[in-house]
Design a protein around this nucleic acid. Structure first.
Lengths: 220, 220
DNA sequence: CATTTACTAAACGCTTTCGTACATTAATAA
DNA sequence: TTATTAATGTACGAAAGCGTTTAGTAAATG
């Protein structure tokens, strides 16, 4: 709605007046995240956010239009960080087992983070107001990760390291085993973050089960 | 805070005045659930709930004290339904494979239901305000289910149908494989409910992987 | 009957938030 | 310099919700 929300053509064409301060923009988004984490959507108000961000209320309106737009922008910013992390998932360690374990390690580190939980909750709380947000995040997050993992498995099948199987299903199974009840638990505030050792064990055991179950035909 | 909220000693000692109407109580809780499902915590207001329940605002206060108490009561009522379902999980089908598949079927049917998703979201949205709620639900829900499943597996180990292993971990793995990305997806509104066939396949394949991975020592 | 309790409807004062408007200051380009 | 845009602070009217009060009706017991 506002010009300031659109892409930075200001970078190419230096506009006339005082340039917008990107720090303000970021401060507002940060404040939104922080306030959300400290109390859900109910606690989110433009006035509160402006106060927390050390910014005028009017500035918030100028940048994001309204509260919905602000939440949308915050989630999308978070998504950017998120997909960046997922792009860095290691897929080329020597050996299938190591590849999977390293993949799982980086992934679970992320899935256990506060940022992830926050974003997840925000999306859920916005599901009814902005129905397109859920599918977007779901596609770029879980689905993309699963497909990437499925590619690794498919490649292993091609090399003969695994028997032929539905790789997408198997990828989902592995993701499920890694997460277990933790994602759900963190989400509802029911269980604390697993410590590194527990997490590592869960990752390795998940890989172990998968490798054993989909091992190349023994003598079937 | 209110006498009406305490246990029904009225059943034993018929009190003096007009008896409270349990239908009102239920109507309020139902309205709360409905309104929550249609828009998250933000949309919840005492006045709106009273309106939707066809009940006076004062009656809501008389029954539940305040909004927090109302949400708390709603979640706990939901919990009662929930644990009742979990108690009905079949654990005695003939044969391990059938037992697990039937267990998974009933469980996933429940985990895919709107009621479950609603409750899950409510708990998550209350995590900061009522921190004890999350652990309570988590303990009686996911943890209890996992332990019940672990018992089945331990019994199978005792009979020699499975090799010795960490049954709790294995139970969590199986639960994870069954759920895959679905619980997360439903939660954030990212993916639609899986159809019965897909669900059945996911359950069976999960069981298959587990049975193969923890099969009795082949010739190790 | 009188008493006691549940419930309703309407109104109350209070607070919070919304989104907008106005006047002012800050920073930058022409 | 002047023109232009960013940002601030304050104030405003409108709306909505909170939690309470009051007066009255409905349903049960003694």
């Amino acid at each position: 709605m506002q010009k300031t929300t659109t892409k930075p053509e200001a970078a190419t064409t230096p506009r006339r007046g005082r340039p917008p301060d990107p720090a303000k923009h970021q401060a507002i988004i940060d404040a939104t995240r922080a306030l959300f984490f400290a109390g859900s959507t109910k606690a989110l108000s433009i006035e509160g956010i402006a106060r927390a961000a050390g910014v005028s209320k009017v500035t918030v309106y100028a940048h994001f239009g309204d509260l919905q737009g602000l939440v949308r922008a915050t989630v999308l910013a978070q998504r950017a960080e998120m997909t960046a992390i997922l792009d860095q998932l290691p897929t080329d360690a020597p050996g299938l087992r190591r590849t999977l374990i390293e993949f799982g390690g980086v992934l679970m580190e992320f899935l256990s983070s506060e940022d992830f939980v926050t974003m997840h909750r925000m999306v859920a709380s916005q599901a009814s107001q902005q129905p397109w947000l859920g599918p977007l995040i779901y596609r770029e997050g879980p689905t993309a990760t699963r497909d990437k993992l499925a590619d690794i498995l498919a490649e292993a099948v091609r090399r003969g390291d695994l028997r032929a199987h539905d790789c997408t299903l198997a990828a989902e199974q592995l993701l499920g085993m890694w997460q277990g009840l933790q994602t759900t638990g963190l989400f509802s505030g029911g269980c604390p973050r697993a410590d590194a050792a527990t997490l590592a064990r869960r990752i390795e055991q998940g890989v172990e089960v998968l490798l054993r179950a989909y091992a190349p035909e023994p003598a079937d």
